[in-house]
Amino acid sequence: MLPYVLSLPALLVCIGILIPFFTSVVYSFQRYRLSQPWARQFNWGDNYISFFTDPRFWNTLEISLLYAGITVLLELLLGLGIAMLLQKRSTLNNFISIMLLMPLMTAPALAALMWKLMTNPGFGVLSYLASLIGLQDFRWASSPSTALFTVVLVDIWVYTPFIMILLLAGLRSLPTQPFEAAALDGVPRSFVFFRITLPMLTPYILTATLFRLLDSIQQFDIIYAMTQGGPGDTLTVFQVEAYLNFFQSTNVGRSAALMIILWAITYFLSNIFIKNWLRLRERARGQA
């Protein structure tokens, strides 16, 4: 009896998640605007069908995938590079890896504000540095052509340390024998990297990639704090677009449909992830 009582709060949170989730599903099949509550009615698939001919939706999908793809790829390369630089256990390396935790522990919304101050056209130090290398009047997040670059930069600043930490833990846990054998045989370093290090590191890389992909495709804090999705609709990724639809144009139906589509994408990705993760966990336990 007791276990049931103890797990009650978890069950309640579950219900607390599932009720709004199904409410979202229902909303997404309705014509529902907060400004016109009297006109609320089921329109079944209309919200979804209209997406096909809606350039704003395609823009949202494109910019979300682009943002997730660019950030995760760059963070992976950078994170792997830094992890390999820090691989050897030394006081300095350990100190640096702890220092690099700091951006990750900074609230992403606040990190965006920090970069906003640094890229201010009037006095921002980065605007000044840009002008030194010949980029006069570089507009950072306020110009449509560089806004994506700027938020990606902030994302990289915040989340690269996450990938670095996971990969560093991975690198340091690899068995040393293959590397010793390769060194004895005089195998070229690039061969060691591509044929030994990378394959053995793959589980860690996959975990880090999926974690970051799931997070990045849902990015809200950095983009909203930096530009509110602007300029124009340059950065209206899924969650920002849904937020603006809900609170500005009060179009609850469209907002809910957007969230359901994003949920479907993340559900697909997270299922791959959870299955892999459980398998790794079982295997780790089996060895212990």
Partner: peptide, 11 residues
């Protein structure tokens, strides 16, 4: 791993 606003907006 689900989007926060999916649950938050109906809430």
């Amino acid at each position: 791993f689900a989007p926060a606003l999916l649950v938050l907006l109906p809430l």
